[in-house]
Design a protein around this nucleic acid. Structure first.
Lengths: 228, 228
DNA sequence: AATCGACGTGAAAAAATCGTTAAATCCCTA
DNA sequence: TAGGGATTTAACGATTTTTTCACGTCGATT
C-alpha cells in the first residue's frame, strides 16, 4: 500500500512517516500543496494524508483539484488543527473521506487509514470458502477448484447457509426456514434441492463436501469422519 | 438510500431521525442491540448509524457480529459519548467505517454519512467506469468505446446503480426501489426498462455488459463467467 | 432379519422469471 | 391543443426454476 503524506510541519511529518512505515506502508511525502498535487497525480498512491494548512495551495484546494481536475478518487484523509464545525464540513463535502483533528494519536491515524483503505478496496471482499469451494457473496458466483458452477436461487441460498455455518451441522428445519420462511410446501421438497446442490458441487469432483447426518441435518465440510 | 439508526436515547434518536429524513434518506431505527442486529441482517440498508452504549448487545458486539457472522459489509458509523483513544481504536479496528463522538452536530453526521456512502458506492469519483462504458455523473453523460449514448432518466438511474455496484449482482428489488421507491407500478415494469437499457448500451456493441442472473438480479460487468 | 421412517434419485408437471414487442397512457413543451 | 418522448401496461413465447411424485436405498430399532 502506497501512501502520500502532504504536510509542512517537519516534526509531525517525521513522526507520521516513521509510524506509517513501521506499519508496513510505502510512504512518500510532499511539503507544499503544489508538489503534493503533482505527486498525487503521477505517483499512483492508494491513499493521501493531507494537511489543511499548507504553503502554496492549501489542503482544501488540493483536495478539490484532485477530485475535479484530475478526476482521481484516491481516498483522502484530511488532518488539521482547525476543528471548527465549518472546517470539518468543508473538508468532508469537498470530497475527503475522513477528517482528523490535531493533535491526534498516530494509532488513530493508522486505524482510520485502515478503515478507509478497507472501504476503498471494494469493502473487504465478501467471500466464503470451504475447502476448494468458493462463494462470492457479491457476484453470487460459485466455483470449485477453479471451475465455475451455476446454481439456481434455492441452491444458492442453501449453499450460503451451509458455508456460513460450516463446519457445523445445519438441521433440516433451519434450511427449510431459510428457503420458505414459515410455510413450507406440501411435500418434503428439501430433498430435491439438496440433490440438485449435490449434483452441482459434488458430483463432478473427487471428494464430496456435503454430507448427510441421518436424522440430524446436513453438513458442508472437507474433513468428514463418519462415526462408526 | 436506506439508513438504519441503532440508538437507545429517545431524544437523540428523534433528532437524528428527523434530520436524516429531511435530507431525503429512508430511515429505520432500533432501540437495542439485538433488534438492531436483526434489522440490519434482514432490512437491506445502505448504511448503519450505531450507538455504542446500548441495552442488549453493545455497539461493538453488534458491529463485530455484523462483520463476522452475517458477513455484511454495510458501512457503519459509530456514535458515542466515549471518546477515549482506546474506544475509537476499538471501533475502527472492529470494522466501523467512521467514529463520531457525542455531542455532535447533525450536519457533521450528515457530512460523514455522505462521505462514507460516497466511498462505499463506486469510489467517490464523479465518473463511473465499467469496461469501456463511461458514465459522468456531473454531466449525466454516457458513452461506450467513445460513442456517446443517449438514455432516458429511468435507464440512467438503473445504469448508475448498476455501475456503482459493479461487479456485484443487483437484485430486482433494489433496482425497483431505486426507480419508484416503495410503491412500484402494478405490472412488472422493470423488464421493459432493462430491455431499453440493453438496446442502448449493449446491442450496438460486440460484447454485452449487462447480464441476467435468473431469479437473482442483474449484473453489469465485463468478465462474466457463467458455467455452461 | 423385518420393518419403518428418513433419505437419494430421476422424471415430469406446475409455476415463476425473463426477453421481446406493441399499444396505451402520461407529461411536458411548443 | 397537438406532438414527441418517456413511462406504463399487456400479451406472447421461451427458458429456468420450483414443486410434486414414484420408487429405490440406507440406517436405526425391534
Amino acid at each position: 500500500m502506497r501512501i502520500l503524506v502532504i504536510e509542512d510541519d517537519p516534526d509531525i511529518l517525521a513522526n507520521v512517516l516513521d509510524y506509517l512505515q513501521s506499519r508496513g506502508y510505502v510512504v512518500d511525502c510532499a511539503r507544499d500543496g503544489l508538489s503534493g498535487l503533482h505527486l498525487a497525480a503521477t505517483g499512483n498512491y492508494d491513499l493521501i494524508v493531507l494537511d489543511v494548512i499548507l504553503p502554496g495551495a492549501d489542503g482544501y484546494q488540493v483536495c478539490k483539484r484532485l477530485r475535479e481536475d484530475t478526476h482521481t478518487n484516491i481516498p483522502i484523509i484530511m488532518v488539521t488543527a482547525r476543528d471548527s464545525l465549518d472546517d470539518r464540513l468543508k473538508g468532508l463535502q469537498i470530497g475527503a473521506d475522513d477528517y482528523l483533528v490535531k493533535p491526534f494519536a498516530l494509532a488513530e491515524l493508522a486505524a482510520r487509514v485502515e478503515a478507509v483503505l478497507r472501504r476503498s478496496r471494494g469493502g473487504g471482499g465478501r467471500v466464503l470458502k470451504v475447502a476448494d469451494l468458493i462463494l462470492d457473496l457479491d457476484k453470487l458466483h460459485v466455483s470449485r477448484a477453479g471451475v465455475p458452477i451455476k446454481l439456481n436461487p434455492s441452491c444458492l441460498k442453501l449453499l450460503t447457509l451451509l458455508m456460513q455455518k460450516s463446519p457445523a451441522v445445519v438441521p433440516r428445519e433451519t434450511l427449510e426456514e431459510a428457503l420458505w420462511g414459515d410455510n413450507f410446501p406440501d411435500s418434503d421438497n428439501l430433498r430435491a434441492h439438496i440433490h440438485l446442490l449435490r449434483q452441482a458441487i459434488d458430483k463432478p469432483f473427487a471428494v464430496p463436501l456435503l454430507h448427510t447426518l441421518h436424522g440430524l441435518g446436513y453438513c458442508l465440510t472437507e474433513n468428514f469422519r463418519h462415526a462408526g
